[in-house]
């Protein structure tokens, strides 16, 4: 029996995250959707999702008083960041004329740009929306039974640039190669949505609920 807390700060459709975790968790595990910092801190593992704009997300995190709990959990137990829940772990995002984020890692979140192009000059749509490949740049327990270069579902207009190259665990090509997955110690975070990535995503979530938090 373990408790998996899904942090709810009012940003986005968390129902799918909860549904997917319930499918991959053991029947006696508890998947808890919560806005309560104490419940986040009491959980065995924490999933930190998020959608929408960085400015709204940071405001909501503070309104719910969740900042300390999220930062603490990100450092001491199996922790999974998804989409905006990955981006706001960094220091700063370009979104909303610049947003100070949680600062768990050094780096920035940048906009793809209105004139984004591929290698041959063909215009690319923003948001980057749909199924794209994730190249696994190093071994990790969460990649267990996830084929390298598998496709995951993405929807985002901003991408993360971590200062420390050691953080990168997966990359994706969209006009250029960007960091789609980071991992350090007990933390793993993705730009894409495992809860919307069919069997591939469910396998990654299954790995997470069984993970001991060791890289």
């Amino acid at each position: 029996m373990q408790t998996i807390a899904v942090v709810d700060y009012g940003m986005g459709n968390l129902r799918s995250v909860v549904n997917a975790l319930q499918v991959v968790a053991q029947s006696h595990d508890r998947v808890l959707l919560t806005s309560d910092p104490q419940q986040v801190l009491a959980a065995d593992r924490v999933v930190f999702p998020g959608q929408g704009a960085a400015g709204d997300c940071m405001r909501a995190i503070d309104e719910y008083g969740l900042r300390e709990a999220i930062v603490a959990a990100a450092k001491d137990r199996p922790f999974l960041g998804i989409c905006m829940g990955m981006q706001v772990l960094i220091e700063h995002s370009e979104e909303n004329e610049g947003t100070q984020c949680l600062g768990v890692f050094k780096g920035r979140v940048k906009y793809f740009g209105d004139d984004h192009q591929d290698h041959s000059g063909v215009r690319l749509k923003v948001p980057h929306m749909g199924w794209n490949r994730v190249k696994q740049t190093r071994e990790h327990p969460l990649w267990h039974d996830v084929t390298d270069d598998s496709r995951f579902y993405f929807v985002h207009s901003y991408y993360l640039e971590a200062e420390d190259p050691q953080l990168v665990a997966g990359i994706t090509d969209y006009g250029f190669s960007f960091t789609s997955v980071i991992a350090k110690d007990n933390l793993f975070a993705l730009q894409c949505h495992p809860e919307k990535s069919a069997d591939t995503g469910l396998q990654l979530l299954r790995n997470f609920v069984n993970w001991d938090g060791q890289p």
Partner: peptide
Amino acid sequence: AREVFIPLTVGGGIRELADIRRMLNAG
């Protein structure tokens, strides 16, 4: 949404913010 884990879009009769909230909450 309980058993199919790919993106779901719902259309038809979406007229108010409350309609959107209801559908997103449903999954």
